[in-house]
Nucleic acid binder design. Structure first.
Lengths: 107, 107
DNA sequence: ATTTATTATCGTAATATTGCAATAATACAA
DNA sequence: TTGTATTATTGCAATATTACGATAATAAAT
């Protein structure tokens, strides 16, 4: 008990849930918003901007990165994170098709 | 430690995260999809349809309901759950404006 | 090679979530 | 009122998530 039984759901359902999980923590939403606001794309001021420890931010970035939402390149000493806009759009589309499909079938 | 520090984020950010949390579990996505598919709107076959205990489904329904996504009326002995389409659409819009805003600001 | 700055990982504690059995509450039927 | 069906709540165990300090890894500069 305690673990989600992901094997009993369809792939589509698990995918939607996995996408939503990325956005289900305010730190990750804040990180994504902050990265997108910096049009320079230069990063880990994220730690200063958001009030969390560096290790924690790094952990959240890993989750965002695992969803393929980031592109990172080294710029001097520091890593420059950038939003993968295509992937971001893809997630938005998947979410919207779930929303639209669900809405339209309803009573 | 362990608890999310929701006080350090803006309301908008917390709202997006809270919405996403509803969809972040496959059982809840499946429930929403199932409710919408039943154009009759008659319900707790949900327990049979999805392979989870009645108590667990009821718990998930509570979370969906707390997000104001359900309308429930009694029909004889059984409760008839229905998707609150206006609210559903509202969540979709909030999500989309976050997506669009984030996308457009990026490098 | 050593230092310095930046990011990732490990270990651990606190809290949250998931799931279920048992039980309570609710609503109708007899 | 008693029984029956449906849904909610409670209590508990298992697992997951969040957060942080300490430490490692990486990359440039001295």
């Amino acid at each position: 008990m305690g673990a989600s039984k992901i094997d009993i759901y369809s792939n589509e359902i698990n995918e939607i849930a996995a996408i939503a999980k990325v956005f289900s923590h305010p730190a990750r939403v804040a990180i994504l918003q902050y990265i997108s606001k910096q049009n320079t794309c230069i990063c880990n001021d994220i730690v200063d901007e958001i009030g969390l420890a560096q290790a924690t931010i790094s952990q959240h970035l890993k989750i965002i990165n695992d969803a393929k939402l980031l592109e990172g390149t080294f710029e001097g000493k520091s890593l420059c994170y950038c939003l993968n806009v295509e992937r971001f759009q893809e997630l938005q589309s998947l979410f919207n098709s779930f929303f639209n499909q669900t809405k339209s079938n309803c009573c």
